[in-house]
Design a protein around this nucleic acid. Structure first.
Length: 490
RNA sequence: GGCGCUAUGGUGCAACGGUUAGCACGCGGCCCUUUCAAGGCCGAAAUACGGGUUCGAUUCCCGUUAGCGCUACCA
């Protein structure tokens, strides 16, 4: 056991705290997953908190999508969701307490005075602008006493602030690099103060919710010393932090829309299996130490540790995600896959209730099992596999061009349908023998007939082995489809 | 600009002072074969650079370079 695991033995509490200013992106999803794995592994509690203190940017309608994405991933929570927008009194109270004990001050500076960094005008002396980290209000000398004040934290002069990070180790930041950050915005109209700022609300909530481990993106490393200062000012013990590396696009810049899908729900819609997506996500920035790749939820729960988390940012590799999906499509116990396929078929209007139980279910199971080695994404079941579930399918022109070009095809198919129609037994070997006999008598290679037949009965050049396909489709449908194909021949 | 974090094949991870630097994705080839997948086998491909420390550095230290992050009355 490591320090991180020992600090709060048996009472781990973590939280995932998304801000509803966008979708649940893959980075957030992975942070949520790591929190969840850690909580479950430690038999602790997972909380969900919506950080919506910025009324301007906040889009409440996005919350539902975030929750859906988490549920799809299999990430559940024990408490919440809590909304920061409903907890403002708590933050105000804490801010007053800090003000009262001298760790904060009223700042009357106009907001522009502090604007700097990347947000400053290009070409201006940014560095100089940034120097304004300690204003005169700090000493009780308001620079513009006519405007409403904000509450700023009074960062100590000199010295350092330390914290322990389960991923990055002991960290130590110089206080002189930390600006006097805002705790409470200045009030509008008749309110005394406005909404709490991020640092304030997170710390107050994390204390109030008794969070023991803060697992979040590495972009918060630089915020951490500010928060540690706040814990101290509020007389609370800081939690263990665990910063997880960021996810980058193929060009190594931060993953964004221009790299393609970043919304988790987009992957759901594309037809990825949640467990495949989860396995892929877990292995981006974390590894169990061995060579394993294929880790089901049970394995992840057994092996996950914060110490195993990497410190380097990782590139989101879609090809590998797709590989995981095909692996799960093939290896998942069939009964775990069936519901996913059912949902997909229902969505595309191809589902029949008779497949839910009895012999219908057996057929469905067998068919999905036959199809799954060739499926990459769930919608493939209703796209190229459509003919297995519906009589309404079209014959792919490319398949036709490729496998019906030989002039002997119509004649061969005619002989085949006659032979198949009279079979008294309908199984793999019977179909096999009948077909090979027709090919042999026609003086052509079996492959020619087989490929041509496949196109006729499923409309695609790509499908499972023909005789297995025939069995699953049944004699009546195979014969009918062959006759229909011949009827339309020209 | 300041501060911080990071640095193993194209990508994700192993090796946590001593290995012919391992695995997986992707890529190339071969096998299998009834299309397409899957599967099996083989192959190309890496310790960013420069200094130390050490009998010995991928591993520890320093510098350089590069990437990323933070630098808001955003979160």
């Amino acid at each position: 056991m490591t320090e991180a695991n020992n600090i709060h033995p048996g009472s781990v509490r973590v939280r995932f705290a998304p801000s509803p200013t966008g979708y649940l992106h893959v980075g957030g999803a992975r942070t949520a997953l790591f929190n969840w794995l850690f909580a479950r592994r430690q038999h602790g509690a997972m909380l969900l908190r919506i950080e919506d203190t910025d009324a301007e940017r906040n889009k409440p309608e996005l919350v539902e999508g975030i929750l859906d994405g988490l549920k799809w991933l299999g990430v559940d929570w024990d408490e919440g969701p809590f909304y920061q927008s409903q907890r403002t009194e708590l933050y105000q109270e804490a801010a007053r307490k800090i003000l009262a004990n001298g760790s904060a001050f009223l700042c009357y500076c106009p907001p522009e005075r502090y604007a700097g960094g990347d947000h400053a005008e290009e070409g201006t002396e940014k560095a100089q602008v940034r120097k304004v980290v300690r204003c005169s209000c700090r000493e009780g000398k308001p620079s513009s006493p006519d405007i409403k004040p904000a509450i700023r934290f009074k960062v100590p002069v000199g010295g350092t602030t330390k914290f322990f990070d389960a991923v990055f180790g002991e960290r130590d930041f110089s206080n002189d690099e930390i600006e006097d950050f805002v705790l409470l915005r200045s009030g509008k109209e008749n309110e005394e103060f406005g909404q709490a700022m991020y640092q304030m609300s997170v710390v107050v909530d994390d204390i109030d919710m008794r969070i023991t481990h803060v697992v979040r993106g590495a972009d918060h490393i630089s915020n951490t010393p500010k928060q540690v200062l706040l814990y101290r000012a509020l007389g609370a013990q800081p939690p263990v932090f665990a910063h997880v590396p960021l996810i980058l696009g193929p060009d190594k810049s931060r993953l964004s829309k221009r790299h393609g899908a970043t919304d988790v729900n987009m992957y759901r819609r594309e037809g990825f299996l949640p467990e495949a997506f989860r396995n892929f996500l877990a292995l981006l920035g974390w590894a169990p130490g061995g060579d394993e790749e294929f880790l089901r939820t049970k394995d992840l729960l057994e092996k996950f540790t914060l110490e195993g988390v990497s410190r380097t940012n990782g590139v989101f590799d879609r090809a590998k995600l797709e590989w995981f999906n095909t692996q799960y499509l093939q290896k998942l116990p069939i009964e775990d896959l069936l519901p996913e396929v059912e949902t997909q078929l229902k969505q595309d209007g191809l589902w029949k209730d008779e497949w839910a139980r009895g012999t219908g279910h057996e057929w469905f199971s067998k068919t999905v099992d036959l199809l799954r080695p060739r499926v990459r994404l769930l919608p493939d079941f209703s796209n190229w596999s459509r003919a297995f579930f519906s009589d309404e399918f079209t014959i792919d022109p490319a398949a036709k061009a490729k496998f019906w070009k030989d002039e002997n095809v119509p004649d061969l198919l005619k002989k085949l349908v006659d032979a198949l129609a009279v079979l008294t037994e309908w199984n793999h070997d019977a179909c096999d023998q009948a077909s090979r006999k027709v090919a042999e008598e026609g003086g052509v290679k079996a492959g020619l007939l087989i490929n041509a037949t496949r196109v006729a009965i499923v409309g695609q050049a790509v499908a499972p082995p023909l005789f297995d396909t025939m069995v699953v489709l049944g004699q009546e449908r195979v014969v009918r489809r062959l006759r229909e194909a011949l009827k339309g021949w020209k």
